[in-house]
Amino acid sequence: MSTRAKVFTGLAIYVVLIVAVAVIFGWTRDDNKAFQPQNEFKLDDWISLGVFSINKAVMYVVIAGALTVGTMVWIANRMQARPNRVQTLVELLYSLMRDNITRGNMDDKMAAKWFPFIGTIFLFIWFSNMIGYIPLPTNTHEKFDLFGMQIPSFALYAATANLSIPLVLALVVWISYNVEGIRAKGVVGYLKSLIPQGVHGPMAGFIFVLEFFSNVMRLMSLSVRLFANILAGHLIILFMGGALVVLLGIEALGVITLPMGVVLFLFEVGLVATLQAFIFATLTAIYLGTAVAEEH
């Protein structure tokens, strides 16, 4: 059977299955008001410590941090002259972080100083994103019984799908590059350097205001880009994976949405998680590099 024939056969089976399920179970709506999809992202205090209460997001942050440090230190301690596959991958990642992201955007002296920061940002966000696609028993609203133990339901969650986490990282980045810029050029020099070269006269004042706000807006764009991407990814996986079926009460819809859910899951894990970490780290390096660069 040729590839084309296989694809068409698969599609035909898929369509026939949808029709069959729709005919057998009926295509009737039964709106479900009890299930709230956004509650998947709700944070309940597990250990109450006032504002510093431990919740799901804190747990994910801690897991991500521990995994980042644990994995990297473990691999760093078994670096060999003849690398195995994992080491090759980590070395590739390390070279990407050090040579492409960091050294590609700033001079070597500054790169040496800021590489640990940029590297940690990349790895921390990457691990945060990746563990977001592993189902963990975090849903304390819905519990299931396992040999008498009340286990929270397994659910997908990502620390980076909560605005606070990208925001605080973006804040650290924002403060870092502005401080570096001021240290390199002085307050007045740094503010002046916000105006692009070649702009003079009254236009300069107008452009300065624009550039200043654009600089402040980086705080928003940097954090929201990561947060919204991961939240949207998780939401769409959630909807395709069953939330839509539950909300509308149309069981047959699951035949359509579940394969899409699988495809989207793979897309998120394979591309978005790494891409967003890469973008965050690269922008950090670019901001730091341009803040101290002579010409803007």
């Binding site: 006032g50 510093f52 997001a57 804190v58 942050v61 940690t120 606070s164």
Partner: peptide, 20 residues
């Protein structure tokens, strides 16, 4: 944004950066 979560994140990030 939750201040508590932000502080936790900062703490974890700082420790991770130091250790790495």
């Amino acid at each position: 944004p939750g201040i508590g979560l932000m502080v936790w994140t900062l703490l974890v990030f700082a420790i991770a950066m130091f250790l790495l």
